[in-house]
Amino acid sequence: MSVGFGGPPIIEGIDLDVRAGQFASLIGPSGSGKTSILRVATGLLEPLRGTVELGVSRCRTSASCFQDDALLPWRTARQNVALGLRIRDLPPAEADARADHWLSKLGLAGYGDRFPGQLSGGQRSGWPSPRCWPCARSCCCMDEPFAALDAIVRTRITQELLDWVEREHLTVLLVTHDLEEAISASDTVAVLGHGPRATMRARHAVDIPRPRDVLEARRHPAFGPLLRTLWDDLTEEAASSPATADGAAR
């Protein structure tokens, strides 16, 4: 698969297979095309060459969330989180109850009636994920959904995601720059090279059993060696990038 926007392809020759019920993470340098792959998977972007095959309907059974919170300023916190559920024809009372549940997980219990403009940037930063998870019936694509969360909320919401994925047997594709997050949550981690024309550098299985506890996963014997492997992959990739070479030449 190749993806571009009129110039050289951003990614080229990408072959990524994510099995049903599998949690896969994409890591790589900035500009390597991680978000572009996510957009192709969700149908927001068509590849220049190649195909995308999904065993489910993108619009009916999948959900996606990106880095921008994209909140509707005229809707309350509860109404924003419940929006996707209401679109899926869930009864209003049940949609609101689920929204309140996820707001409490974000540390926002009691804030459901406030509008986005009445909350701080940090309080708004975690909304994209819980707003899209309940709408996913088979697969979920996420672009750095936890980047702006503080450590405690981030760990708690990641555990909620893992529990949700295992309970609903969801397929997940996560873009992240956090190597520990990628290992803790994933069954497999794919490493992209630098762009343009980025390719798949490596793919690593995460040999940590499920069901999984986020904190306990970091104590598993397989965690440290895989963290070192991913770090080495990215370090070698950074050293070989054209930008690094140009800087050294100057």
Score class of each variant (00 low, 15 high):
1 M>V: 13
11 I>H: 01
17 D>W: 02
17 D>T: 12
19 R>P: 00
19 R>V: 10
24 A>H: 08
25 S>Q: 01
27 I>P: 01
27 I>C: 04
28 G>Q: 00
28 G>H: 03
30 S>E: 02
31 G>K: 08
32 S>I: 05
33 G>L: 09
33 G>C: 07
33 G>A: 05
34 K>C: 11
39 R>K: 15
40 V>N: 02
41 A>H: 11
46 E>A: 14
47 P>T: 00
48 L>A: 09
49 R>G: 15
50 G>L: 10
52 V>E: 11
58 R>N: 03
60 R>P: 03
61 T>F: 11
65 C>I: 10
67 Q>P: 08
72 L>H: 08
76 T>P: 08
77 A>W: 03
82 A>P: 09
92 P>I: 09
93 A>F: 06
93 A>K: 14
95 A>D: 12
97 A>T: 13
100 D>R: 12
101 H>G: 05
104 S>L: 02
105 K>E: 15
107 G>L: 10
111 Y>R: 14
114 R>E: 06
115 F>S: 02
116 P>I: 07
118 Q>Y: 01
118 Q>W: 02
119 L>T: 04
122 G>Y: 09
124 R>W: 04
131 R>I: 02
133 W>H: 01
135 C>A: 13
136 A>D: 05
136 A>H: 04
141 C>Q: 03
141 C>M: 11
155 T>S: 15
156 R>I: 10
157 I>H: 04
158 T>Q: 12
159 Q>I: 14
161 L>M: 15
161 L>A: 12
162 L>S: 11
163 D>S: 09
163 D>F: 00
169 H>S: 14
169 H>C: 10
172 V>W: 02
177 H>K: 07
178 D>N: 12
179 L>I: 15
182 A>F: 06
183 I>M: 09
187 D>Q: 10
189 V>W: 04
190 A>N: 04
191 V>T: 09
191 V>Y: 05
196 P>C: 12
196 P>F: 09
202 A>F: 05
206 V>Q: 07
207 D>Y: 00
209 P>N: 08
210 R>N: 13
211 P>W: 08
213 D>L: 06
216 E>H: 13
231 W>H: 12
233 D>A: 07
234 L>I: 13
242 P>V: 02
244 T>Y: 09
244 T>K: 10
